Simulated assay, not measured.
Amino acid sequence: MARPMKPAILLAALLLSTPALADWKPIEKIDTYAVSGESAEQLYLSIGEKGPLIGTGGNARRVIAHTFFKLTWQRDYQPQEGGACVLKSARPKLLITYTLPKPAGKLAPGLQVRWDTFASGLIAHEKVHGAGIVDMVDKIVAFSTGLTAHNDPGCKKVRAELTAYLDQLSKAQRQDSRDFDTKEFGRDGNMLKLIAAFLGAPPKN
């Protein structure tokens, strides 16, 4: 997810890696929101006005781009003779949606070149977030498959152990995502340089 937009900063993007487990693949989707302007500065201001809102209520804020995912599962819990329970398989269905800005009208040739470079950097950044999500799901699949608990005829112990692991992994993924954004938008960060290049100004230290 792109960091909250500030007067002189905005953006986000990422690069999705091949899943570690070959029997499933994520679905990727790109949504766009329209921005307008006849200069880089005007386009940037339009992003600030129309970028996706994240959070609710007083915590809502606009960002340049956003990565959202929806994850559902098909799990096969199998009670065993003797009262054990085995999670035989866990197949994920993962939809990753990237929300990115797109000019509403045709841009002048020179501005189009600058926009294309800017847009490429945004999606590259967002897809790093996407790759982190895929990695998290791969780890869940690996942990889930074959998970066994003894004296668990109702499979409650297996479910509880899986839930605890999912909570731990989800928190780690969110922290990694925040750390990545902090680095990318920090001093000498790639996103800060990308914005500065788009606006035609040196990055602020």
Rank of each mutant, 00 (worst) to 15 (best):
S120P: 08
A196R: 00
P26R: 04
Q112C: 02
P202H: 08
R187L: 12
A13Y: 08
D167C: 01
S89Y: 02
G51Q: 11
N190D: 14
T182N: 14
K6W: 13
Y33N: 09
R3P: 08
Q173T: 03
V63F: 03
D31I: 09
L100Q: 07
S120L: 13
P92H: 06
M136Q: 06
E38N: 14
G58W: 11
F69P: 07
D152H: 00
H66R: 10
P4I: 09
P19L: 03
F198D: 00
E161V: 09
S46P: 06
L94N: 01
L11D: 11
I27N: 12
P109W: 03
P7Y: 07
G189A: 05
Q74L: 10
L45W: 03
I195Y: 04
S120A: 15
I123E: 14
F118C: 05
L71D: 00
N205W: 10
K171L: 11
Q168R: 12
A12G: 15
A124K: 15
K50D: 09
W73E: 07
H129Q: 04
D176E: 10
D188H: 13
Q80E: 13
G186Q: 06
P4S: 13
T99E: 06
A142C: 07
G37N: 12
F180H: 00
R61K: 15
T163C: 06
P52H: 01
A12E: 14
V35G: 02
L199F: 08
K70G: 09
D181H: 00
S177R: 00
A65L: 07
G121Y: 01
K50Y: 10
L122W: 02
L162Q: 00
D138P: 02
P203K: 05
S17W: 02
A104I: 09
P202A: 08
G48W: 06
K70Q: 15
A131F: 05
D135Q: 14
L10G: 14
L199Y: 02
Q42D: 10
Q168G: 07
Q112R: 09
F118E: 05
G132Y: 00
A142Y: 06
L45G: 08
M1H: 06
G82C: 06
L162D: 00
A34I: 07
L122K: 02
W24R: 09
F118S: 01
R3G: 15
K156T: 12
A160R: 03
L10N: 11
S177N: 12
K157H: 10
P101M: 02
K204E: 14
E126C: 08
H66E: 11
E28Y: 11
D23S: 12
P103R: 03
D176W: 07
P92I: 05
F143R: 05
G200F: 10
L15I: 14
I47Y: 00
A172S: 14
G121K: 03
G51P: 08
E126G: 13
Q112I: 03
A108F: 04
L147E: 03
S17I: 10
G51T: 13
R178P: 04
D188L: 11
G154N: 14
P26V: 09
R3W: 15
K25C: 11
